[in-house]
Computed example of a mutant assay.
Amino acid sequence: MPETAAPLRAGRAMGRVRGLLLAGVLAAVPALTGCIAEAGPAPTGTLATNPTAPGTAQAPPTSAPLETTQSSNKAPVYWIGRSGSDVFLYREFRDVPDQENPVTRALRSMMSDKPFDPDFFTPWQNPDKLATSISGKDVITVDVSEDAFNSNLDADMAARAIQQLVYTATAAAASSGLIDSGQQIRVRILVDGHTDYMAFDHIQLGALMTRSTGLVAPVWIIDPQENVEVPGGSVKITGRSTTAGGKLRWQILRSGADGSTEPFLTGETTASPEQGQAGVFTLALTMPAGDYELRVAQAGTGGGPDQFEDTRAFKVR
């Protein structure tokens, strides 16, 4: 994929509003170990196909491709994050204990851990009880206690929180090889073993739900993760855009000893149009030791501003 880089002469005002972490988490408690039987097919969930907060721009109507099986023991966890005035789902990979099954581990991290990236947050609370099971090849059942929903959310944020769970559960099952990622995966959420719970006082649960389109971030830095250290020399940066073959603009700022930042590099690249790698972008940059911030955004069209910026702080040592 083509990319260009040149020293940046003037920084652009591309910053993302820092998301507020919505509430503290409760002390961790061991998960349930029961398995829940799956009934026959049920109607799809009551979530809107593409919920969008009032006054925000409409994201491209696509969802993140289902994760593929990986050998790593890291759990894929989705968080809610802000990009300007827009709110999307972003993913991080987390080290998690292996006492529970992969889906339960990922969901427990989503409900109890803080994201690495300070731009992300979660409205979920660490539940007293959490159990998951898989029926057949395409249905995940999550049974969680009512205390997980102890956050005051509006309807739009409640819809995103439920999809945060759906994305995380399906990602964990797919990446661990527990389900067939070649078909649509459905999730049923039970609360204390019962259906028809009104989550966050807005979303009725119990019916099967799938990943809603348009909620995953249009631009998404995968590696490096927030505040990690990478070896000096050639630094590989990877990410994904929901626009396959679309143009992206990126810039890197370098932090000084006094905490100030200065422009270091800027460039453009194109997200892959190839099937199986659609939307993926890769940068290979030679960088000296230092503290950096990477910014990537979809290039504006027709002279318009760039959109949907994602940022990432990292260190080169």
Score class of each variant (00 low, 15 high):
Glu3Ser: 07
Ala6Ser: 03
Arg12Tyr: 03
Arg16Gln: 02
Leu20Arg: 14
Leu22Asn: 03
Gly24His: 14
Ala28Gln: 15
Ile36Tyr: 09
Pro43Met: 04
Pro51Ile: 08
Pro51Glu: 07
Pro54Met: 13
Pro60Asp: 05
Pro61Gln: 13
Pro61Glu: 07
Glu67Arg: 15
Val77Phe: 05
Trp79Tyr: 00
Trp79Lys: 06
Arg82Asn: 10
Gly84Asp: 09
Phe88His: 15
Glu100Val: 11
Arg105Lys: 10
Ser109His: 11
Met111Glu: 05
Asp117Asn: 08
Phe120Pro: 12
Trp124Met: 07
Gln125Gly: 05
Gly136Lys: 08
Lys137Phe: 03
Asp138Pro: 10
Asp138Val: 03
Asp154Val: 14
Asp154Leu: 11
Ala155Gln: 13
Asp156Pro: 11
Arg160Asn: 09
Val166Thr: 12
Ala169Met: 08
Ala172Phe: 05
Ala174Cys: 13
Leu178Ala: 05
Asp180His: 02
Ile185Gln: 09
Arg186Gln: 06
Val187Thr: 10
Val191Lys: 09
Val191Met: 11
Thr195His: 09
Thr195Pro: 00
Asp196Tyr: 11
Tyr197Gln: 02
Ala199Glu: 06
Gly206Glu: 14
Met209Val: 12
Thr213Trp: 04
Val216Asp: 02
Ile221Val: 10
Gln225Thr: 10
Glu226Tyr: 09
Val228Asn: 10
Val230Ile: 09
Pro231Glu: 12
Val235Ala: 04
Thr242Leu: 13
Thr243Tyr: 09
Lys247Ser: 05
Arg254Asp: 00
Ser255Lys: 15
Asp258Pro: 00
Asp258Lys: 04
Phe264Arg: 00
Leu265Trp: 15
Glu268Phe: 00
Pro273Met: 05
Ala278Thr: 04
Val280Leu: 12
Ala284Glu: 15
Leu294Glu: 00
Leu294His: 01
Gly303Thr: 04
Asp306Gly: 12
Arg312Lys: 13
Arg312Ser: 04
Ala313Asp: 12
Ala313His: 12
Phe314Asn: 05
